[in-house]
Each structure stands twice: as structure tokens, then as C-alpha cells.
């Protein structure tokens, strides 16, 4: 039995701790921005190479207020989203099939390992050749990245299903399809969800890298353009924008995950 006094102090302490930690986090941010600003202003850092927080903030405000960036942001997000959806669907289907059909897994095991060991960003130039400068090449790159993550997690999730749960639902006279629906898929869901954070990040990385290497639109394209004219401020503004977007999406996924996995102890 938990002692109510201990529980109470533990809660109070956590509640007292949270604002303090938040204050320290904000403090760290302000301090590093001020430090960067000062070092750039006093010439300790070369503004040409390192830009300045104030310049970057102004640039981002320009992009947002003029509406220049929206088209690019939209393109990048669409590419990432498509890659994410296609990669996830393929990953789940293949993960499921490989986990259920042992022969397939045995035969293809070495090939999957080789493909997984390959630094897949290398495929970007090939996809540019195959699919052109439009969004298809970026989506293709993203799919290869997302697929592998989801595939492995689905495979693992299906293989690690608790045999007692399986036997229980079997005894309730479930067919193979019903086992899939009531046991295998929900059980794999935990694994798939834990991979979503990684795979959405990969999808965005693939989109930006693809755009950077060759495109006429997208955040990666904006960064490449800025780099082409030695506009460090533009490069930083593009990077920060991308990070903020990824962070926002990540928070949304976390919300969704917390809701869908609310059955987990301590969840």
C-alpha cells in the first residue's frame, strides 16, 4: 500500500519542480540567443558565417508576413505526408506478411539486412534521375526511409505477441482473420506507434534533402537558394522553420499516441 503522505509529497514536489524546470529551459534559450547575438555584434563570431538571431528572426517574420514561405512549406509537408502514409501502409503490410509467413522472412532476411545497412539518403540522386525534379522523387526517398522503420517495428510487434492472449482469443473460437484483428494488429500497434516519431522525422528529412539536391519548390529549395548566394541568415531561418514544424507535428503525434495507447499501465 502506498503511504498517502509519501504520495502527497511526491506530487507536491513534482508540481513545484515543473515551473522551475520550465523557467530554466526558457532561461537557457534566452541566454544562448543573447550570447550568440552579442558575440556576432562584437565580432567574436563572423556574421557572414554565423548570422545573428535578430537577423534570422526578422527574416522569418518577412517570410511569414509576405506569404513567400507558405508555398514552400506546403510542398515540403505534402511530400513528407505522402511519404509517411505510403511508407507506413507498405511497412505494415510487409511487416505483417513477413511475420506470418516464415519462409518469406527466411528467404529475404539477408536482402533486408543489406538494404537496411545501406545509407538510403544515397538513393536521393538516383530517385532524382528516375522520378525527376517534382515531388515524386522526394516522396520515393521518404518512402524508403519510413518503410524500413515501420516494417521492422510491425514485424517485431507481430512476433512478440503474448502467446497467452493469442490462446485465449483462439479459445473464443476466433478465425485467423479475427486473430489478426483482435490480437496481432492491436499488439503491433504499440510498436508501430513508438516508431511514428522516428518515421515522421525521416519523412521530413527525406523531403528537405531531396529538395536541397534538386527542385524548384520547398523548404530545402529555399535553403539551397540562400546557400547559393552565401545568405547564412536564410539558411538558418530555413533550418529553424523546419525544426519548428517537426516539433509541432511531433506534439500532435504524442497527443494521438497518448489517446490511442491509453490502455497501457502508466500511460
Amino acid at each position: 500500500m502506498a503511504d498517502p503522505v509519501t504520495v502527497a509529497t511526491a506530487t507536491t514536489r513534482r508540481e513545484a519542480g515543473r515551473p522551475v524546470i520550465l523557467a530554466m529551459q526558457v532561461g537557457f534559450f534566452v541566454l544562448s540567443m543573447v550570447g550568440w547575438e552579442l558575440m556576432s555584434s562584437t565580432g567574436l563570431l563572423d556574421v557572414f558565417f554565423f548570422s545573428k538571431p535578430s537577423l534570422i528572426a526578422v527574416r522569418m517574420w518577412d517570410w511569414l508576413s509576405s506569404g513567400f514561405i507558405y508555398e514552400h512549406l506546403f510542398t515540403t509537408l505534402i511530400e513528407a505526408l505522402l511519404a509517411f502514409i505510403i511508407g507506413t501502409v507498405l511497412g505494415v503490410i510487409f511487416g505483417l506478411t513477413f511475420a506470418r509467413v516464415r519462409l518469406l522472412a527466411a528467404v529475404f532476411n539477408p536482402y533486408i539486412r543489406v538494404f537496411n545497412a545501406l545509407p538510403r539518403v544515397i538513393l536521393a540522386p538516383i530517385f532524382l534521375l528516375w522520378f525527376g525534379l517534382g515531388i515524386a522523387s522526394k516522396v520515393a526517398l521518404g518512402v524508403t526511409l519510413v518503410f524500413m522503420v515501420v516494417f521492422f517495428n510491425t514485424y517485431q510487434g507481430i512476433r512478440e505477441v503474448n502467446p497467452v492472449l493469442l490462446n485465449n482469443v483462439r479459445m473464443l473460437q476466433a478465425s485467423q482473420r479475427q486473430l489478426l484483428r483482435y490480437v496481432y494488429l492491436p499488439s503491433a500497434m504499440t510498436w508501430i506507434f513508438s516508431s511514428l516519431h522516428t518515421s515522421i522525422g525521416f519523412a521530413l528529412v527525406a523531403a528537405v534533402v531531396g529538395e536541397y539536391l534538386g527542385s524548384a519548390r520547398g523548404v530545402g529549395f529555399v535553403v539551397a537558394q540562400a546557400e547559393g548566394v552565401f545568405d547564412t541568415t536564410g539558411v538558418f531561418a530555413g533550418l529553424i522553420l523546419t525544426s519548428v514544424v517537426v516539433l509541432g507535428i511531433d506534439l500532435l503525434i504524442e497527443r494521438l499516441e497518448n489517446y490511442l495507447l491509453r490502455w497501457r499501465p502508466g500511460g
Binding site: L165, P186, W263
Partner: peptide
Amino acid sequence: QDALLPWR
């Protein structure tokens, strides 16, 4: 053993 489906 426990055999209820934890997600239901």
C-alpha cells in the same frame, strides 16, 4: 495467467 486483452 492474465489473458485479458490489455487494449480492450
